[in-house]
Simulated scan of single mutants.
Amino acid sequence: MTTSPELIEGASAASDSDSGSAAPSATLGGESKRSVEQIALLLFITVPFLALLAAIPLVWGWGVSWLDLGLMVFMYFLTCHGITIGFHRYFTHGSFKAKRPLRIALAVMGSMAVEGPLVRWVADHRKHHKFSDHDGDPHSPWRFGETVPALMKGLWWAHIGWLFDEEQTNQQKYAPDLIKDPAIRRISRDFVLWTIVSLAIPPLVGGLVTMSWWGAFTAFFWGSLVRVALLHHVTWSINSICHAVGKRPFKSRDRSGNVWWLAVLSCGESWHNLHHADPTSARHGVLRGQVDSSARLIRWFELAGWATDVRWPSKGRVDARRRENASNAA
């Protein structure tokens, strides 16, 4: 098994197995979104979001069972780490090398987050780093200007609006290493299958444990719909909120900031300023008290021998990226 990371404007792409070749059409989603894709996207955004809104009066009126809550939390952090460790730190930036079983598991876990096919997700994010908060960035909140009305419009664009843009990132240009891997290409192409699996696990478990259709329904409501909606908006908040506000103790060429109150739910991704200052770092929360569960799991993978060549930030590397005044904030 070999690895040949490719640098794309500071974001390195890990490829532990580069064999075979394929055109972008071999992955799900090409250079433009068809109308049917946009309709499906709208459904996958609005239906879970409506469930999230309905969750408030349901908790107030009937409560939520420990089984439903457990399924929601388990599925949330399983798929959240699939995105943060798998799609982001590993596949996009090559923060570590992974043994083949871990590589496949991370690809599947990330796909179950229902945030789009793996190859497309990685291509979009690599392009984001190349043009971060400048022309060409797929989802910068500063896209329309710096006035308050322009920023409000930009925040909406960065959070959700960009997902409906018909023009898509060139996958062959930004993720050729992933396209060359037949297994990863297959997982990316089977995104719909992983979505079904992700949505089906909670009601299957809930129904079997309670031996009732009602138990299956409530597990689907909390463990599937509410969980997906919450994870979606936390992930999108990294694009919008973390590029508009937050402390910026490290030097970066964009407006990425650290937003502490998103740290736990984002599995460490909201320590976004350090990430943009040092994109290949396996740890984003490098300062005292900065919780980063993704980095902790990567460390466990390393200790188990599943991950190697982990790019841990050294003190010298961190100090070199500090601003002269570490108290700078947005």
Rank of each mutant, 00 (worst) to 15 (best):
residue 242 C to W: 01
residue 243 H to F: 11
residue 243 H to W: 10
residue 244 A to R: 06
residue 245 V to I: 15
residue 246 G to M: 04
residue 246 G to Y: 06
residue 246 G to V: 06
residue 247 K to L: 07
residue 248 R to Y: 04
residue 249 P to V: 00
residue 249 P to K: 10
residue 250 F to G: 01
residue 250 F to T: 00
residue 250 F to I: 05
residue 250 F to M: 09
residue 251 K to W: 00
residue 251 K to P: 00
residue 252 S to E: 07
residue 253 R to N: 10
residue 253 R to F: 03
residue 254 D to W: 08
residue 257 G to C: 10
residue 257 G to E: 04
residue 257 G to M: 05
residue 259 V to Y: 02
residue 263 A to M: 06
residue 263 A to V: 07
residue 264 V to Q: 00
residue 265 L to I: 05
residue 265 L to D: 00
residue 265 L to Q: 06
residue 266 S to W: 07
residue 266 S to H: 04
residue 266 S to K: 06
residue 267 C to L: 07
residue 267 C to M: 14
residue 267 C to H: 10
residue 269 E to V: 02
residue 269 E to S: 01
residue 269 E to T: 04
residue 270 S to A: 12
residue 270 S to I: 06
residue 271 W to G: 01
residue 271 W to M: 03
residue 272 H to E: 04
residue 272 H to I: 03
residue 273 N to F: 06
residue 273 N to C: 07
residue 273 N to K: 05
residue 274 L to Q: 00
residue 275 H to I: 09
residue 276 H to E: 12
residue 276 H to M: 11
residue 276 H to L: 12
residue 276 H to N: 12
residue 276 H to D: 11
residue 277 A to H: 11
residue 278 D to M: 13
residue 278 D to I: 12
residue 279 P to A: 09
residue 280 T to A: 15
residue 281 S to R: 06
residue 281 S to F: 07
residue 282 A to Q: 14
residue 282 A to I: 14
residue 283 R to L: 12
residue 283 R to M: 14
residue 283 R to K: 15
residue 284 H to V: 11
residue 284 H to D: 10
residue 285 G to A: 13
residue 285 G to F: 11
residue 285 G to T: 13
residue 286 V to R: 09
residue 287 L to R: 15
residue 287 L to Q: 14
residue 289 G to R: 13
residue 290 Q to M: 12
residue 290 Q to G: 09
residue 290 Q to H: 12
residue 292 D to L: 11
residue 294 S to L: 07
residue 294 S to Y: 07
